[in-house]
Amino acid sequence: MGIKFGSFNEICETAALVICPLVGTEQGIEPTCYSRNVDVGGTLIFQPSTCVVHIAAIIMTIIMILHVRSKYTAVGRKEIVTFFWMYTLIELLAIFLDSGIIPTSSAVYIWFAAIYTGLVAATYACLLINGFVGFQFAEDGTPLSLWGLRISCLVVFAISFFVGAATFKNFAGFNYTKPLGLWIVYILWPLICAIIYIVSQLLLVFRTLDDRWPIGDIVFGTAFFAAAQVLMFGFSITICNAIKHYIDGLFFFTLCMLLSVMMVYKYWDSITREDLEFSVGSKAAVWEVKDPLLAGDGPPMGGAGGFQAPSHYNYSEEDTASNFNGGPPASLVGGVSGGQLYGQGGQGYNPYGGGRGRGYPPNSERGY
């Protein structure tokens, strides 16, 4: 298939894109071969297999967003989350447009297709800007970085939305028979953004990182992105005819684009390391005491089963009578313990003289 600059004729004859019913002619451009429809409750659902991939893409992207948000101190966390949310919106909108839930004959289809066009262009712009976050031209997570990203994406969305709507409605000098502006924002702009992002990340890895493993993520992501374009624009008709219209190139395009987005997440995760000092995690930190004062080799305190006392608590030379070093129990009164006074066979100190006698109560032989 030959692709002409500024023309959707060959592209739409091969692949059933969202904008194809709105360009080329008044009735749009019909693909040569497309996936079978499914009747669900009296409603025809177009591209059913592709819709399943759209749903899977939304689920997987939400999981990736949750994982990114859990890395509280990772570089570029908020910026990359913006990209994933925009990709989720594209997949959600594609379900309604690809499946025919919003019919192409409906008056609102034009506006939803224009919104879809703007989201695609803005999402690639978001990816492009995320490619420069690692270079720290502006500190990530700051208002300058976040609002710069949001405003840039909003500007690209507004321009692309206007170009799409003007082309579909034939006003402001745009025409659906010669959709040059739409071709630039829908076909050329995503390709430029993807190439710049890939090159910038390779430079980032080679110049600032010691680890070379993230290059593998970039290679796989690039391979999936390239495969998506080739399978849809080059082999869609061949696939459709070979599988008897059950699926077409759009199915593999959507699947490969999902895999490439997953590799963007994998690459970002591999080059970011969370600062554990300030992170909030589910696992408790294991603290090891390094104080030498608490790591002695003295006798066990508290008798058998007690903890090991430090060496500077060894009283073997100056303490020979205390309970700590094996002597008799200590006392708080008169140097005599309770065990000495009341125990040991009832013998104790006789406060009334006469040497040793029976302990308290006083000797019954002594009167008052």
Rank of each mutant, 00 (worst) to 15 (best):
E13N: 10
A16H: 12
I19M: 05
V23K: 02
E26K: 10
P31D: 07
C33M: 01
S35M: 13
V40Q: 10
V40R: 02
P48H: 02
I55K: 02
A56P: 01
M60N: 03
T61V: 11
I63M: 08
M64W: 02
H67G: 08
V68C: 15
T73H: 00
T73E: 13
T82C: 15
T82Y: 15
W85I: 14
M86Q: 08
E91F: 11
E91I: 06
L92Q: 09
F96K: 10
S106T: 06
I110T: 15
A113R: 04
A121V: 08
A122S: 15
T123I: 06
A125L: 12
A125T: 15
L127A: 11
G131L: 01
V133W: 12
S145C: 05
G148D: 09
C153Y: 07
V155M: 13
F157L: 07
F168R: 07
A172T: 07
V185M: 02
L188C: 10
I192G: 08
I196M: 13
I196P: 01
Y197I: 04
I198P: 00
S200M: 05
V205C: 02
F206T: 08
D211K: 12
F220Q: 14
F224T: 08
A226D: 13
F235H: 14
T238Q: 15
C240A: 11
I247M: 10
D248P: 08
D248E: 12
G249M: 13
C256R: 04
C256T: 08
C256V: 05
M262K: 03
V264C: 11
V264Q: 05
S270W: 01
T272I: 02
D275V: 04
F278T: 04
S279D: 00
S279G: 01
V286D: 03
W287E: 12
L293M: 03
L293P: 00
P299F: 00
G302L: 03
A309R: 04
A309H: 08
A309K: 07
H312I: 12
H312M: 11
N314A: 02
N314K: 00
D319H: 01
A321K: 13
N325H: 05
G327I: 10
P328N: 11
G343P: 12
G346Q: 09
Y352S: 05
Y352K: 06
G354T: 11
G359L: 04
P361V: 09
P362I: 10
N363T: 02
